[in-house]
Amino acid sequence: MTSCHIAEEHIQKVAIFGGTHGNELTGVFLVKHWLENGAEIQRTGLEVKPFITNPRAVKKCTRYIDCDLNRIFDLENLGKKMSEDLPYEVRRAQEINHLFGPKDSEDSYDIIFDLHNTTSNMGCTLILEDSRNNFLIQMFHYIKTSLAPLPCYVYLIEHPSLKYATTRSIAKYPVGIEVGPQPQGVLRADILDQMRKMIKHALDFIHHFNEGKEFPPCAIEVYKIIEKVDYPRDENGEIAAIIHPNLQDQDWKPLHPGDPMFLTLDGKTIPLGGDCTVYPVFVNEAAYYEKKEAFAKTTKLTLNAKSIRCCLH
């Protein structure tokens, strides 16, 4: 018999989150649709729960009410004593943790798909938090293969000092899905179709896995975050240069030392320094102006996964 890495157990509980950011409308629209008619997301033997994560922000069509829901799922915020004085999103995070967690427990949901849009030209993107997770690498390989020839990129946010504390991190297997470009507060049919297909293929993978299909060893190309880059700023902290036209919409493309990065209003080009080629992502993302992030630098690498098969009882 072929030796293989056996994944822990079959997958039982899956959640699909929309509206973690209330103005990213593809996930909101799909989740609302699936709450009314969820036939397309159901798979035999699998509990799939669509869920609106930040209903107040969705109602106002804004990213958040008090603070970013997708950055506060750490033990400090989840452990705060519940009171009306807490920011709305912290209270909501505790409610979500109660419903789908608790985080880092045996009772937490197996998989959470968190649906997002970006204003950046990132196409279909899967966000991975753990480079050693054979199950998710296999799932992402399946999704990428199923979507081809449509490109699907994998963004690895594993980093020693950049801690995200994402909404989906309460699950055993957290999956971020990011599709763009799409303006905030807008629905685009092409973007919706791409996100819908990503979810379909992900659920198909889980179904095949649960039925005992063995997935042979595989490898995927990923883009691992190195650092986030702020806009150049003046002495008052105001933005002093904008994304250069040569960099705009060039997510995932190589940016070499000396290539144009920013452009000042008086026409001066600010190039990339250093001696390493990087791959920019979230270029000129609207939501990241407040976070002082013009783009993120990534490096390209390959992740390998062992063969996996479900432990059938």
Rank of each mutant, 00 (worst) to 15 (best):
S3R: 15
C4W: 14
H5C: 10
I6R: 10
I6F: 12
E8L: 12
I11C: 09
I11N: 04
Q12R: 15
Q12N: 13
K13T: 12
A15V: 05
F17G: 03
F17D: 00
T20Y: 03
H21Y: 09
G22T: 11
G22L: 07
E24H: 13
E24V: 01
E24A: 08
L25A: 15
T26M: 03
G27L: 02
F29V: 06
F29H: 15
F29K: 10
L30Q: 03
V31W: 00
V31M: 04
V31R: 00
K32Y: 06
K32C: 05
K32E: 08
H33P: 01
H33A: 11
H33M: 07
W34N: 00
L35H: 12
N37L: 09
A39N: 12
E40A: 05
I41A: 04
Q42K: 12
Q42D: 13
T44V: 10
G45N: 11
L46F: 15
E47M: 12
E47R: 09
V48W: 00
K49C: 14
K49I: 10
F51W: 10
T53L: 05
R56A: 15
A57C: 06
A57T: 05
A57P: 04
V58F: 13
K59L: 11
K60A: 15
C61R: 09
C61E: 15
T62Q: 15
R63I: 04
R63V: 05
Y64W: 11
I65L: 11
D66E: 10
D68Y: 04
N70S: 06
N70A: 10
N70I: 05
R71P: 10
R71Q: 14
I72N: 13
F73P: 15
L75E: 10
E76Q: 11
N77A: 15
L78K: 08
D85W: 07
L86C: 15
P87E: 11
P87W: 08
E89K: 04
E89Q: 05
R91Q: 15
R91T: 14
Q94A: 06
E95S: 09
E95N: 12
E95V: 08
N97I: 11
H98C: 11
H98L: 13
H98A: 12
L99A: 14
L99R: 13
P102Y: 12
P102H: 13
D104Y: 14
D104A: 07
D104G: 13
D104T: 10
E106F: 08
I112H: 02
D114V: 04
N117S: 08
N117T: 12
T118K: 06
N121Q: 06
N121S: 08
N121I: 02
G123M: 04
G123N: 05
T125S: 14
L126A: 03
I127H: 09
L128N: 01
S131R: 12
R132Y: 11
R132W: 05
N133L: 03
N134D: 09
L136N: 04
L136I: 11
I137A: 03
I137P: 00
Q138I: 03
M139A: 00
M139E: 00
F140D: 01
H141Y: 14
Y142S: 03
S146K: 11
P149D: 06
L150G: 06
V154R: 00
Y155W: 10
Y155T: 12
Y155C: 15
L156M: 10
E158F: 01
S161V: 08
S161A: 14
L162S: 11
T166G: 09
S169W: 07
V175Q: 02
V175G: 00
G176E: 09
G176I: 11
P181R: 02
P181G: 04
Q182A: 11
V186T: 14
L187K: 00
L187H: 03
I191W: 02
L192V: 14
D193G: 07
M195K: 02
R196Q: 07
K197Y: 09
A202G: 11
D204F: 00
F205S: 01
I206E: 00
I206H: 00
I206A: 06
H207Y: 13
H208A: 13
F209Y: 15
E211H: 07
E214A: 11
F215L: 05
C218G: 00
I220D: 01
I220C: 06
E221Q: 06
V222S: 05
Y223H: 15
I225T: 09
I226K: 15
I226E: 10
K228Q: 15
V229L: 05
D230H: 13
D230R: 12
Y231H: 04
P232G: 00
R233Q: 13
E235N: 14
A240E: 11
A241Q: 01
P245F: 02
L247V: 08
Q248W: 02
Q248N: 04
Q248P: 01
D249N: 07
Q250I: 02
D251S: 03
D251W: 03
W252P: 01
K253A: 13
K253N: 12
H256D: 10
G258A: 10
G258Y: 07
P260S: 09
M261L: 13
M261T: 15
M261D: 03
F262N: 00
T264P: 00
G267W: 05
T269R: 05
T269S: 12
G274A: 05
D275A: 10
D275F: 06
V278I: 15
V281T: 14
F282D: 06
F282Q: 12
F282W: 11
F282N: 15
A287P: 14
Y288R: 07
Y289H: 12
K291I: 06
E293M: 13
F295S: 01
K300P: 10
L301N: 05
L301E: 08
I308R: 00
I308S: 03
R309M: 11
C310M: 09
C311Y: 08
